[in-house]
């Protein structure tokens, strides 16, 4: 696989992890969605999180970005506990970008404004810099022709590419993807995955919740399989897809591969 060779280009993992999740649990009422989750992400890692619906994948991602408040446990970002009261949530979120299933582009702004607003208001950069960096990333996702369009005028695939550019314009250390292609028509999935593939090659640290198994197999440096709120199995894509140990993983993958 060509993509796997490129992994060696990405920055070597340092001793400390960029994100460390320890004993993370999350309940909605009496329903326990995440149970004692432990996992690490190193710089340059592309971690794909797979598993059936309701297994807690998205909740895990939302906990990492503090959009959901974990019930217990710790999340460390560069060894700082982001769930402590001292942590500045806004600064942290600016460094950890998120791409949503339903894009969540700002409907009152044009494509360009969507990508500059955070750079201007959160990072407090001047307008010229914001425009330059926004255009740089819009170019990368192939959305430069649409800078004047409003989100409502874009197709799903286009909107998602803009959403990726918006997240990239913040120059995050880690980018989280929450089922980025699940709301797209099948014919638009490819264009979004291509963009993500390119980012993976450049060594951007990514955590991707996805149902695109072929993509996960090709792009990720590590695959996490979640089942019923726990990490049932994790390892290299080769191990998970070709030699899964856990019977639940085998069952899940066989259902997917038979399609």
């Amino acid at each position: 696989m060509a993509e796997n060779e490129n992994r060696t280009v990405s920055p070597a993992s340092s001793g400390s992890h960029i994100i460390r999740v320890e004993h993370l649990s999350k309940s909605f009422g009496s329903h326990e969605v995440l149970k004692d989750i432990n996992f690490n992400v190193d710089k340059g890692d592309v971690t794909c999180v797979i598993g059936s619906s309701g297994s807690g994948k998205s909740t895990l991602l939302r906990c990492i970005n503090l959009l959901e408040e974990a019930s217990s446990g710790h999340i460390y970002f560069n060894d700082a506990d982001i769930m402590s009261r001292e942590n500045n949530v806004h600064n942290y979120r600016a460094k950890v970008g998120m791409v949503f299933q339903h894009f969540n582009l700002f409907n009152n702004m044009t494509v360009l404004e969507n990508c500059t607003i955070g750079v201007r208001k959160v990072l407090k950069k001047d307008d010229r810099y914001a425009k330059e960096i926004a255009e740089k990333f819009l170019e990368k996702v192939g959305m430069i022709p649409y800078i004047n369009a409003k989100p409502a005028q874009l197709s799903g695939g286009q909107a998602q590419r803009v959403a990726i550019a918006r997240a990239l314009a913040m120059e995050p250390d880690v980018l989280l993807f929450d089922e980025p292609t699940s709301a797209l028509d099948p014919e638009m999935v490819g264009e979004v995955l291509d963009v993500m593939r390119a980012l993976a090659k450049e060594g951007l640290t990514m955590i991707i919740v996805t149902h695109e198994m072929a993509f996960a197999r090709d792009v990720s440096s590590r695959v996490v399989f979640m089942d019923d709120g726990v990490i049932a199995e994790e390892g290299s894509p080769d191990v998970i897809f070709n030699n899964p140990k856990n019977p639940r993983t085998q069952e899940f993958l066989s259902r997917f591969m038979n399609k």
Binding site: N91, F100, L105
Partner: peptide, 29 residues
């Protein structure tokens, strides 16, 4: 749509910024 707030939060906006730049212009309309 709560997604608008989440999108704004995810790039690090404060409650006030989110309201001012994202939610209020749409709510006002």
């Amino acid at each position: 749509d709560p997604g608008q707030t989440e999108g704004a939060k995810a790039i690090g906006m404060t409650h006030f910024q989110t309201m001012n730049y994202i939610i209020m212009p749409q709510a006002l309309r």
